[in-house]
Simulated scan of single mutants.
Amino acid sequence: MNDATTRFPLDDPSGANALPGTISVAERASASRMIANALRDAIVDGTLAPGAPLRQDAIARHFSVSAIPVREALRQLESEGWAKVEINKGATVAPLSADEAREIYEIRAALESLAIGLAIPAHTRASLQQAEALCKAATAESDPSLYVARNEAFHMSLYAPAARPQLFELIGVLHRRGERYLRLKFGLPSYKGESDREHTALLKAVRRHDIAAAQLLVTEHLLDTGDLLHRFLCENAEAVSAASAPSKTRKPRAKRERATSGS
């Protein structure tokens, strides 16, 4: 995130931070979705930093579209928590929030505990084999972008046999909203390893068809992640605040004048 920019990357004359190129005519039917995906990727990888402006005119010029699909894309990103849109101020990349990170994982803990309890009785040998393969893939992954996708795929494979599409949709929204926060764990490699071990223990509980143990494990796994991210973001905010605070300089002490006595 140190390489992130607070300027819109299309303004970079070098093109080093540019977003993907213009979309084709065939793709313009889904222009708003394509634009939202490109902006989301730029936010996730740090090209667009928290607070960076998302100017409609620059985005429209870059993708060779009108303002309408751009506005739709920004509304979508706002609904997902990626962007902040203010009247008369325009859109900016949403800031990282310690409280939001913790809340996302608190809600996930409740929903995913429900999902895994519903799913365990319906798991089959094939579904468990798929979950095991996805668990191993997430554990071995070192690329942040791929890990986020594989982590979500593993979790969802544990819940899939429940066949609850509305529940899955809610969980999917929370996974997307938490994506920026989950990537922070790659700055804390020891915690990534701990998370992998928790995944393995969770999979074993599902294999045993131990609903109570699986629900407890997934709840603790998600709540602990939320607490970790909350602490990390709070500490980071405090460090930034301390670094930006004006340093206090001590005033030199006034020299005491020696009293002279007459002789």
Rank of each mutant, 00 (worst) to 15 (best):
R150Y: 06
E169V: 02
A149T: 15
S190T: 15
E194R: 12
L217D: 04
A201I: 08
T219A: 06
L203T: 04
L223N: 07
E152K: 12
I171F: 03
F154V: 02
Y159M: 13
L203C: 07
P161N: 08
L222F: 03
V206Q: 05
M156Q: 09
A213T: 07
E220T: 03
T200A: 15
L184T: 10
G172P: 13
G172V: 03
V206R: 08
Y191Q: 14
E220I: 00
Y159T: 02
L188M: 15
R208Y: 12
P161A: 12
Y181K: 09
L170A: 14
G193H: 11
E169F: 11
R183M: 09
L217Q: 07
L174M: 12
G226W: 03
S195D: 11
R207D: 00
A153R: 06
H175S: 08
E179V: 09
H155C: 05
G178E: 07
L158R: 03
L146C: 08
E198I: 05
V173Q: 10
A160N: 06
Y147T: 08
L229S: 07
T200Q: 13
D227Q: 14
H199I: 01
A163T: 03
R197A: 10
R177C: 02
V218Q: 00
Y159L: 04
S195H: 12
R180E: 12
R183W: 05
L203H: 00
A201V: 12
E179H: 11
L146W: 08
A213R: 01
A212P: 05
A205S: 08
P161R: 12
L228N: 01
V148F: 08
L174N: 10
E152M: 05
N151P: 04
M156D: 09
F154N: 04
L203I: 05
V148Q: 13
V148H: 07
P189L: 00
V173S: 09
E198Q: 15
K185A: 11
Y147R: 15
D224C: 00
V173L: 14
L202R: 01
D210H: 03
P189G: 02
A201C: 05
F154E: 01
H230L: 07
E220A: 08
E194M: 09
A160H: 11
Y191E: 08
V218S: 00
G226K: 04
A163E: 14
L170T: 03
P189H: 02
Y147A: 15
L222R: 01
E179W: 04
L167H: 11
H199N: 11
F154H: 04
E198Y: 03
L202W: 04
L229G: 10
L158H: 00
L228S: 06
R180Q: 14
G187V: 12
Q166C: 06
